[in-house]
Design a protein around this nucleic acid. Structure first.
Lengths: 203, 203
DNA sequence: GGATCGATGTATCGGCACGATACATCTGGG
DNA sequence: CCCAGATGTATCGTGCCGATACATCGATCC
């Protein structure tokens, strides 16, 4: 998930870790900011996989091991996406399966990069997410109906609030989906009026 | 967090892992169910710490190593809380600091066991949680106001939705707090009217 | 009557994210 | 001049997760 997000951000321009973290926090919704304990290992993984490349000003691995006090003298390490990285990002951005929407964080990243995503893929991800959340809602409603009497007031409140949240998320997703469909219809109409008909049935 | 929840559940009656998992899922809100990859290690930690004790019907560690096909034949392992475990739970249930409400999961567990929590502690936890969530909301509003123009429609929607959720949570907490205060007032009035004041807090 | 399927049940593994922490650099205000 | 706070890189231990393996038991199906 983090790796996906990093690739997406580096799509725009090279960055170093600190910037990446701030951008990530901004994009991912202000709350859930990312910790360095996740970020740097992720950067290492991506670099090992050849998806990003670092411009490290001070290699520092040539010195003998007898300079422990010299461990400092770090320079900024700027990361840039590679050709393979762009390929990988294109793959990730176009996936429409459960891996795109089952996990909340995953889905958030997909949504954050929707401007790089084709319209039909966008729609399928939103619908998939809605189905997932609807299932959660139904399970929660069921569980609530069945165990209602055995729960104390606080547990009940907790579940009521959870149910309300999930319900709101479904409605939110429905708005997004409707809006996507409107856009698609408008686009189709525009294409119709124009003499060139590139529409092959994907309404 | 898990350990807290387990101690709370075992407060009622001994259970084995499978039951624990289901109860946990029921109490924690139906969605976030707990995985075995967390549960069994947690049980081990608790047992190592002497907070729970297991009734293992088949020790099975006496056999020589020449019975590899016999690895099965597992019995149910029933866990019960110990005296130290009850002590620890009492400590956990009465903590009012940030560790009780900063983390969402932590707070959920505290709320789930509010029936074991003193009224004044309940109130302090709810208020602490509200402050935490209010801070999140304010940070999010700020970030949204500042970066509004630079974000595309989808990122904006994501943040709007997140803000709405946080806002709803604040209102929900406020309802709970008001209700707690009403209860406290009613209780105080009741004590006033009654001539005998044996009430030392354990309502 | 036997096969098979789903619920019950215990357990481990690798992976990933987290919070805490350490340490270094630069900038600006007291 | 110094020191506080932003910038910046990095590691460590911990906790939780999904996937997986394996075993038992009852019910239903053929």
């Amino acid at each position: 998930m983090l790796e996906f997000a990093i690739l997406g951000l580096l799509q725009q321009s090279p960055m170093h870790g600190y910037e990446l973290r701030k951008e990530l926090a901004a994009v991912l919704g202000g709350l859930r900011s990312i910790s360095y304990g996740s970020l740097y290992p992720a950067l290492k993984r991506l670099q090992a996989a050849g998806l990003i490349a670092s411009d490290d000003p001070t290699p520092r691995s040539l010195l003998p091991a007898d300079a422990p006090a010299l461990t400092g003298r770090r320079g900024k390490v700027v990361y840039a996406i590679t050709a393979e990285g762009k390929e990988r990002f294109a793959d990730l951005v176009s996936q429409t399966g459960p891996e795109a929407y089952d996990d909340e964080g995953r889905f958030g990243v997909h949504l954050a990069f929707f401007r790089h995503t084709a319209a039909d893929v966008r729609l399928r991800i939103l619908e998939g997410r809605r189905r997932t959340v609807e299932r959660q809602r139904d399970r929660l409603m069921d569980s609530l109906r069945r165990t209602q009497e055995k729960l104390d007031r606080y547990t009940l409140e907790l579940q009521r609030h959870g149910l309300d949240s999930v319900d709101r998320e479904v409605r939110w997703l429905t708005e997004l989906i409707d809006s996507e469909r409107d856009d698609a219809r408008a686009e189709a109409a525009r294409a119709e009026q124009s003499p060139t008909p590139p529409d092959d049935g994907t309404t």
